[in-house]
């Protein structure tokens, strides 16, 4: 985690000189000290996070691909003759097998990011989703992103 903070600092400062590095190291040390002490960061969690990086990257690329696919459908819908007649909006209660809190947040946000579906609310293991038409509704029940999240959980 401190490494990530330092990389962020370097990205923001745009140049690598001695004074930038010195100020960065001091600031990162102070912030990480505070967070490790009071905010529940631990090196164990950091190690878990590093182990998850490949799966997370694969997930992000799959998410971008899904967003592309759904966006094209959405554009076709908007530019069709009668958008209000072509849609079948509905609120669906979608039951999910994803267990951990963080992964459920990721799932809800991915559902919202893919056009055609918006997460209205999450209650326990039920995600309430507003789908704009049958196509998005079908895509929801065969969501590859959800399967990826379930796999990630199993492999932990």
């Amino acid at each position: 985690m401190p490494v990530l903070l330092f990389a962020l600092w370097l990205a923001f400062s745009e140049r690598i000189t001695v004074d930038v590095i010195i100020v960065g190291v001091i600031a990162v040390a102070l912030v990480s000290l505070f967070m490790y002490r009071f905010s529940g960061w631990s090196t164990k969690k950091d190690a878990q996070m590093v182990a998850r990086i490949p799966a997370a990257i694969a997930y992000v690329f799959r998410l971008i691909f899904e967003v592309f696919k759904a966006n094209i459908h959405m554009i076709a819908l908007v530019l069709s003759d009668d958008p209000n007649g072509n849609i079948q909006p509905r609120i669906v209660a979608h039951k999910t097998n994803v267990k951990t809190q963080g992964k459920r947040v990721a799932l809800a946000n991915s559902i919202t990011l893919t056009p055609g579906t918006v997460t209205v609310d999450v209650m326990g293991d039920v995600v309430f989703v507003h789908a704009i038409d049958d196509h998005s509704n079908k895509g929801l029940s065969t969501n590859p992103l959800e399967k990826m999240l379930e796999n990630m959980e199993r492999n932990q």
Binding site: N71, I75, L77, P83, N84, T112, T114, P115, V118
Partner: peptide, 21 residues
């Protein structure tokens, strides 16, 4: 799309979603 759809929940789809891409 924002102007072609009538209802809030339908508008959110185009308004917020196409932005992401």
């Amino acid at each position: 799309g924002l102007f072609r759809f009538r209802y809030v929940l339908n508008r959110v789809h185009v308004a917020a979603k196409c932005d992401s891409l």
